[in-house]
């Protein structure tokens, strides 16, 4: 009698358990609650967080307004990758560059050989010297205790005045993640 009741219950539960083990592919939004969080690498939402917080501080400062011919011309310089992984730093700098352009307070410049050759033809007298350069560094620090690993990624940015040769604005955003394994969902 007992077996008669248990068997259908088990039969009904098995498919539920099997379907619960995986998820079908679906579209997700960067920064949503389903994001994958891993301690061993910089996740896409980490670039967005660092860029967003840094850009807001840059927009709040008046440093980029102190130029002779506004809007300021900022050349996006080198971002040094001091992490253990291969990083495309455009994931950080492009977001910052877009936000600066949309703010109307600065125009940005990156090294583009084709654009430079056209520029030499159209205005041979010389190119405008950038008012500022934006450089930075991404640093990874790892601490562990037993199976638990804590990784902190420091996103450092410096805005350098090309005429004075000094930093007029700097920022550091730290993104720390801790756990024993990667997880899905914040």
């Amino acid at each position: 009698m007992k077996a008669k009741i248990l068997f259908p219950l088990l039969a009904a539960a098995t498919p539920l358990l099997l379907t619960g083990c995986g998820t079908n592919a679906h579209y997700v939004k960067t920064g949503d609650k389903e994001q994958i969080i891993s301690t061993s690498q910089i996740n896409i939402q980490d670039y967005a967080t660092a860029a967003s917080l840094s850009v807001q501080k840059l927009l709040a400062t008046s440093a980029i307004d102190k130029v002779a011919n506004p809007p300021a011309l900022i050349e996006i310089s080198r971002i040094i990758n001091n992490t253990s992984q291969q990083v495309d730093t455009d994931l950080l700098t492009k977001k910052i560059s877009i936000a600066l352009l949309q703010s109307g307070r600065a125009v940005t410049k990156t090294v583009d050989p084709l654009a430079a050759s056209y520029q030499q033809q159209t205005s041979p007298a010389g190119t405008r010297v950038p008012d500022f350069t934006l450089s930075g560094k991404i640093i990874q620090t790892v601490d562990s205790a037993g199976d638990t690993k804590r990784t902190t990624y420091s996103f450092q940015l410096s805005l350098n005045d090309t005429r004075a040769g000094v930093q007029v604005w700097e920022d550091e955003e730290e993104i720390g993640k801790q756990g024993t394994r990667a997880t899905v969902g914040f």
Binding site: T30, G31, D32, Q45, A48, T49, A51, S52, L53, V55, Q56, L59, K95, I96, I98, A99, Q102, F186
Partner: peptide, 9 residues
């Protein structure tokens, strides 16, 4: 819409 509207943990 802009990067300053990113979702921040």
């Amino acid at each position: 819409k802009n990067i300053v509207s990113a979702t921040i943990p």
